[in-house]
Nucleic acid binder design. Structure first.
Lengths: 174, 174
DNA sequence: TATCGATATCTCGACATCAAGATAAATCGG
DNA sequence: CCGATTTATCTTGATGTCGAGATATCGATA
């Protein structure tokens, strides 16, 4: 019987250092949560690179995909958009301004609620997001290549368990 | 025999929407990677809240813990710090400036390399980071409460597999 | 109908980050 | 020992985000 040599990542080193320095603390939560944070940072860089080829910024993509997912006529309120993207309302106003300026979305008053506004994807926006999304999926599939299909499912399930409490509580940013 | 009702998170809804709109695409990568990104954003908010009680900013904590982990005399170069925290060199210079201004670290020339600088935790910085870290661990343990011990280990292992390629390649930010 | 709290969006100033380039010192090859 | 390359850090300008507050409207209630 042979033992597979354990491959380390930065978090293994980080945890080992903490155990050395603070043997009194139980730092096992970091094994999961530091990996989530660090992986997310790496993913963000990958995304940026993928989108650069399509002339799309990462923040633009977040908004455009939310509209794309909404289906024809690809229209949502700013409120719905900020809940989908986890940013604040000030940020979303700014994003919509810039997307409208570059012709990827339009903004019109909500006919049913005079406080409200509806943001709609233009044909140009639709085309742009579809190209970028296909490319993103291609790259993400590569990143996941190290995991078997069933491992990916297990991973998704475990992450869902952690996510549900956040998504269940109406912890929408205002 | 009963079936447990599947609890959904935002990503389940997001994936379902994509399958509706783009049945031609295989969006399974999102099951893992969108969850990583979203969870990371939620975690960042939690961290901010935890640190507020200790008068520490999230970005401060990242730098201070890196120094803390280094062990006595709690001293690292800016280069080592930016590799540990995944930020750019300009950002790190700025962070060190502000931490030095608030008395949590000191900066001195590296006696062995005149290009270099060494950043050291002050006693005040050490005290500050230890308090914040203990509190963070307490809160993170709660977040993981929904998972059994062996599930947490499985999750950590799967995440490590995804992380290793990033951490192995010297993809340090300059 | 008048009032009051909730909701939807926007405004604005402070701030942290990034990216690219500048500077200086170390290291390597000949 | 010299010149070229690499390494370490800092500088600067542009930019995106946050957070708090302002404005307008809706909905429930008396």
């Amino acid at each position: 019987m042979t033992f597979s040599r354990p491959v380390e990542d930065e978090v293994d080193r980080l945890v080992a250092a903490w155990r050395q320095e603070r043997p009194d603390l139980d730092v096992t939560p970091l094994e999961v949560l530091s990996r989530v944070s660090r992986l997310s940072r790496h993913l963000e860089r990958e995304r940026r690179a993928a989108f650069a080829d399509h002339g799309v910024e990462s923040w633009e993509f977040d908004v455009l995909t939310a509209l794309r997912r909404a289906g024809d006529p690809y229209e949502l309120s700013p409120g719905a958009l900020l809940r989908a993207t986890l940013v604040t309302s000030g940020t979303m106003t700014n994003r919509i301004d810039r997307l409208a300026a570059s012709g990827l979305v339009t903004r019109r008053p909500d006919p049913e609620d005079r406080r409200g506004v509806l943001v709609r994807l233009t044909p140009a926006g639709l085309h742009r997001v579809d190209a970028a999304f296909a490319d993103l999926l291609r790259r993400e599939r590569e990143l996941l290549g190290g995991l078997e299909q069933h491992e990916q499912q297990a991973l998704a399930g475990l992450l869902r368990t952690l996510l549900v409490p956040f998504d269940a509580s109406d912890s929408g940013v205002q």
